[in-house]
Nucleic acid binder design. Structure first.
Lengths: 102, 102
DNA sequence: TTGCACTTGACACTATATGTCAAATGTGGT
DNA sequence: ACCACATTTGACATATAGTGTCAAGTGCAA
């Protein structure tokens, strides 16, 4: 899994590889070109729905792109906490516990 | 670290153990009693600042309470994703990478 | 039945997220 | 240099989520 690349970078690379324009992809997402530009450069966050649509449009694996997107948000929120590492360990345990309860 | 207890439960237990009233603790936090009641029952989220003040007031270790609080938010957001486990693994790597860049 | 702690729900205010639009900037071709 | 078109930028609008107050309601113990 890609750790050193941002979600925006992945999206831009994939779009250019397919020869698509911002305008074209933005139209499929039903948003203004400006937003997609900002998403690719990391100035704005995409929504989860946009990420899933983008995986379709750009022929990326939905799960992998989603993991990139979700983990980036989490990492960004935690990077300035010095308890970040332990927090993620505990979060794993809590997720496992909550899933088992469902 | 405590995985099966919510932050709210920890806060309520600790407050009651010290014999403090909602009213008293809420006053120290400078919020209405209603909010603290909701925080303890999990109906609302505390802010990070409130968590740190509460650790002081209730003689809890700041780091541990913060980890509880942060991991609970993350776990709650991810529990309905079936990529939750992998997401947290990648998030750990991303945090490590981002911290090394800083 | 009164008093006190706590809970509940309606509401208000603020901050953040998400979007549009138009003008500015960059880029490749002629 | 100029043009056409892709992208970027910033001002602004709207929607949603977060944080709070207040007052009335609930429960319990003296």
């Amino acid at each position: 899994m890609n750790v050193k690349q941002t979600t925006g970078e992945i999206l831009r690379e994939s779009r250019e590889k397919k020869g698509l324009l911002l305008r074209q992809v933005a139209a499929l997402l039903d948003i203004d070109t400006a937003i997609l530009s900002k998403i690719e450069r990391g100035e704005r966050k995409a929504t989860k729905e946009q990420i899933l649509k983008l995986a379709d449009i750009l022929d990326l694996k939905k799960d992998e792109l989603l993991i990139q997107y979700l983990s980036e948000k989490i990492a960004y929120d935690l990077v300035n906490e010095d308890v970040a590492g332990k927090t993620l360990k505990v979060a794993e345990q809590k997720v496992a516990y909550l899933k088992s309860k469902k």
